[in-house]
Write a protein that binds this DNA or RNA. Structure first.
Lengths: 203, 203, 203, 203
DNA sequence: GATGAATGAGACTTCATTCAT
DNA sequence: CATGAATGAAGTCTCATTCAT
């Protein structure tokens, strides 16, 4: 065990984190293109040169931010999912984790669902990666559920995309609304709808 | 008969259309921010100055394009919807119209579902307008269907958003994929899922 | 005598005059550089093409305007001066004519005293021409007055410039003021000062 | 002692000065509108971006230049004036200071007397400020002189403007002439004329 | 003669990136 | 390591001028 990580590393990590925190705020507020490196620097209370010491360029900041945020999201989701064994329960808790995390980090929602999409073709693959990882997870659970005869068979490929899209839309309009009502209140209704769509929660 | 009475008007309209056509291609290919007015000009086989004679600025081109495209979409949808009387059939044909139109105009899909979202806060209201008009239409039909006891009661607000989101996601990933399979093939599966989600198409 | 000038000529002259009238307003209001040919065209209720039919370019309009205006000024001055024989009286009435003409055509004053000066080096010679013609006239009268022993000898070169400059400044600040008092009221005081400066109107 | 403590400040100030020096040359040579930021940049041996780091825009450069130059002028005039007590002597030395300063900085004269006037309405107030400060000073001394019975009473308002205008004209035509004779040689004659105009230097 | 759509050179300005201090 | 002055490529927009109709 290493009780004391070298100070330099620590400072550097801290600085990097501060930059990414600032970048999250700035990107979520102005969008990728409108955000300037100067904005990020002053929000992070550092200098432009400082930014370029830690990151090779503006796009690298954005990618690192997507990466860090995706990691955070997946960790949150992973926690919940790990506690379940039933595939439907896994899916259920995954969605809930997403809703809760986005619900308490609105800039994160804007970053992933709004800004990342229009940041430019250069980021499409990265974003698609994150999204498809989640969609793949959904599909996997669906397949499992079908195999276990928990639900009648259905096109799990399309279903996983549709579920993701439905959630996406609900969260996005919440993220862009002026004074949205809490996501938590909306989610149960969405949940019922989604479960019904795969033959559960029969009326 | 004199087909060429409004000569100057005609020329101007033609040029405007050509500019918007070019803008659609360029915006869909590079995104709003990366697209340059020069790109649009040369694609439209005109000059930068020519563009600025017809539009006050780059954002105005984008807005005009969204407007024209929304008009086209709504017209297509309206045609189909008008031929139906049953609310569920209306919804059904509306979705199909969207899928078909997007399916044969991939850049239109990219424009609405990808680029418009990240083009910047200045366009959020316009985009929200178009989207919410469609969502409102869905909700209205759902409410009607519930009133007519065609389906059991459900949260039509969330459902309309979820349906739109699901469709959105399916079309978006099709629009961004390298070699997507035709949308037409995917749609029936999505349709089944959606209908089931509101208690129809009982397994 | 020609009782009926050809109509075409007439219309052309009229159009030219209307353009110059418009140009006077526009140049006086916005300055030479800020004024656009479109401004002039719409003020003259014609089209850009119409302007370019009558004048080879923007600078030509400005020069023609200076020319026409100088002609008007000199005519007014000439009238009054011709009625006098005494050199001092000639100068006196020349100044009065200038003051009256500028006083009732504020844009003319702005054109000559403000805008023409900053319109660019290309117009310096033209402007200098007009001004030096007036200064030369003053000098000539001064020389005459000295020769006739009407006044004690003095440097007539500097005096003519100084007189012109003093008048210039008074008229300019009147032309630029927001709510100036009529020039007519100010002139007598200036007149007394100027006459005293060459040894007349002894206290 | 450490002469180089404020290193960065120093460099920035130096660069700003160099930019203003270059701007003076360029504006005086081509006029405000014709001068391009590129001209100023290359004259200052820096880059366009460098200019915009120090000044928010072209107009700000012009204003800063007017400001700096007015400060220089007033300082020179202030020095001389402070050494005198008699109001007429003060006026006299103020005019002389102006003539000498302009006489040895021809671009300064062009800047103030020619270009600033036609630079556009946006600068009128600034220029009027500088001029009216000088005119007010003249009037104040005149009033004082009248109060002390050094001169017979006269309209000091008009006189201060007229004096300023006379000087203005003499300097301006010197500044615009191709090969002018030194201002110093002309000034005594102007001085005699001006003094006589308020009843001094009786013939 | 007149019109106004079209052109294109060139202006100002922004900002990601570099680098001397 | 950090700073911020400096760079320069690139973008949006303007407008004097031309020319087909």
């Amino acid at each position: 065990m290493e009780p004391s990580v070298p100070v330099r590393q620590d400072r550097a990590v801290t600085r990097q984190e501060r930059i990414l925190d600032a970048a999250l705020d700035v990107f979520a507020a102005h969008g990728y293109q409108q955000a300037t490196v100067d904005d990020i620097a002053s929000t992070a209370r550092t200098s432009k040169g400082g930014i370029y010491f830690h990151f090779p360029g503006k796009d690298a900041i954005f990618l690192a931010l997507l990466d860090r945020s995706a990691g955070l999201l997946l960790a949150r989701v992973g926690e919940r999912v790990g506690a379940e064994t039933d595939p439907i329960a896994k899916v259920d808790s995954a969605l809930l984790a997403l809703v809760r995390t986005f619900g308490s980090h609105r800039s994160l929602a804007r970053l992933f669902l709004v800004e990342a999409r229009g940041a430019g073709p250069q980021f499409h693959s990265c974003l698609a990666d994150v999204q498809s990882r989640f969609v793949a997870f959904l599909k996997q659970q669906f397949d499992e559920a079908v195999n276990q005869n928990l639900v009648p068979p259905f096109d799990t490929e399309v279903a996983s995309q549709a579920w993701f899209g439905a959630l996406n839309q609900v969260v996005t309009s919440w993220a862009l609304a002026d004074r949205p009502r809490p996501l938590d209140e909306t989610y149960p209704h969405l949940r019922a709808l989604l479960l019904r769509s795969i033959g559960l929660l029969a009326p």
